[in-house]
Design a protein around this nucleic acid. Sequence first.
DNA 1: CGGTTATGTCCATGTACAGTAAACAGGGAA
DNA 2: TTCCCTGTTTACTGTACATGGACATAACCG
Lengths: 135, 135
Amino acid sequence: MYSKQGTSERQTVMTAQKPKFGTFIRERRTARGYSLRRFAELVGISPTYLSHVEQDKVDSPPTADRIQKMAELLGESADELIAMAGRVPEDLPKIIQSQPEAMPALLRAVKGLTPEQLKKLQDQAAKMRKEGDPS
Amino acid sequence: MYSKQGTSERQTVMTAQKPKFGTFIRERRTARGYSLRRFAELVGISPTYLSHVEQDKVDSPPTADRIQKMAELLGESADELIAMAGRVPEDLPKIIQSQPEAMPALLRAVKGLTPEQLKKLQDQAAKMRKEGDPS
DNA sequence: CGGTTATGTCCATGTACAGTAAACAGGGAA
DNA sequence: TTCCCTGTTTACTGTACATGGACATAACCG
């Protein structure tokens, strides 16, 4: 077992994920007592595909809407699972595009801030909303 | 059998709307005196494809990185062009995924705010950066 | 006039991504 | 044994994003 590359499959690109998405899903699914077929059916995908996904054999994980469904069934945070899969929640693009200059600028400005700081900004935003349009 | 995948949400009719991406690009390109072939070469795409894009004959516009290049060559805002094409700037997904819970929450909180309000938040964020933790 | 060069466009094709179908191997239970 | 349930493999589909080569047209040059 020297340096014999454990698995001999050719594994295309597979953008490396830290806590691999498929592995995590399998762990949570089995913990909930779902069979692969049953879970696939509930999610709305084929058992074949789910099997591939859970083995991290896919080039890229499922789309955000399917991950959303998985999250609901597993009682996990959809946003977190979606991020783990390297995707973006489906409602965000529209929000960003609604202010093509300001939204990207804001996101770049908040890049690197802590969750606490982000929460503060979130609260500020909520306040602005309530008060109506100042400026 | 498994739930069908209508993810596309094609705009079947496309009532005359905001400047269509392709039309806009053609207008700006010709205004700059670039030939189709020349511009395609500079952007790094085939003339064929550019022709299709400019006629709005494509199912979906080019990817964000190519639009970025077009914007640079045309002296336009990349973010705006990318939004016009219904896409998201390439650097944003990583920013969002860096805080899988807080970033989506923030975006949803700022949804619908005016550019002025967004600018205020952006400034607050910049301040936090200067003062707050360097993480 | 004919030949070359430049313009944009059409048809056919290619590759990657997201996903499916059908057949398969193995474990328990009756 | 037969039956069903588990997960897996190989091969395939359809769409998005993109390319190549041939084509029509017009302008320019001898």
